[in-house]
């Protein structure tokens, strides 16, 4: 096939905003799956370095040390939980045919902003603030204090985390809408239900895994 013989429209011109909020216009299928899976593993690895747990589809907590495999398992449970419920939603609401590999791949890639959360929670200051908050809440120790700089670092990490979670949810929705050709109220409603149920399932699975393994 000779490309110059074709009349090619300007469909492929994509702005930076589209790359950040809807990369699935140009990226899906096997490529998205490979990239997304690598990023999920990388995020889990960086998370393990700072004891940052992605312990739910849209959940992040900094805290307890665990073996490396546990962090990988958490991230994979998160990814597959949302894929499971979006698959059910797509079977019900998609008016056309769609490929499972597109949903699987784009949902993996939609999790890429989580790497920023894993990175901002790397400094030890976050753990110190975390310990301080737990101590205050449980009143287990009144001697603990925190350095103001630790507070600033923790506040920054928290803000980044909120932004990242919103960004990730937008990406997950776009991935679902593009991969399964679902639009309008049906798309939004089925996505909200799916993400809530997937969040609950992933939480339960991770807690069960935690109780059995650690």
């Amino acid at each position: 096939m000779i490309a110059h013989e074709m009349n090619i429209s300007t469909d492929s011109k994509i702005s930076l905003g589209q790359y950040l909020l809807n990369p699935f216009r140009t990226l899906a299928g096997g490529t998205a799956l490979l990239l997304g899976f690598i990023i999920i593993l990388l995020t889990a690895f960086v998370g393990a370095l700072g004891n940052t747990h992605f312990d739910g589809v849209i959940d992040v907590h900094s805290g307890q040390a665990a073996p490396l495999w546990f962090f990988f398992a958490e991230s994979i449970i998160d990814w597959l939980s949302i894929v499971l419920f979006l698959t059910v939603s797509a079977f019900i609401f998609s008016p056309t045919r769609w490929r499972f590999i597109d949903l699987l791949g784009t949902q993996a890639l939609a999790r890429w902003p989580a790497i920023f959360t894993a990175l901002v929670f790397l400094p030890d200051a976050n753990r110190r603030v975390n310990d301080f908050i737990i101590a205050k809440l449980t009143q287990s120790s009144t001697q603990l204090t925190i350095h103001p700089m630790d507070g600033v670092i923790f506040a920054f990490a928290s803000i980044v985390t909120v932004v990242v979670i919103i960004w990730m949810v937008v990406l997950m929705y776009k991935a679902y809408a593009v991969s399964c050709n679902v639009k309008g109220v049906k798309a939004i409603a089925s996505f909200i239900v799916s993400i809530l149920v997937a969040e609950a399932l992933s939480k339960v699975l991770i807690i069960l895994m935690f109780k059995r393994a650690l």
């Binding site: 090619i8 469909d11 492929s12 140009t26 045919r97």
Partner: peptide
């Protein structure tokens, strides 16, 4: 490949 778009984007356009 021709339009440099993803498979589902092209399929949605066709639909």
């Amino acid at each position: 490949k021709l339009l440099q778009l993803s498979y589902p984007t092209v399929r949605n356009r066709l639909d």
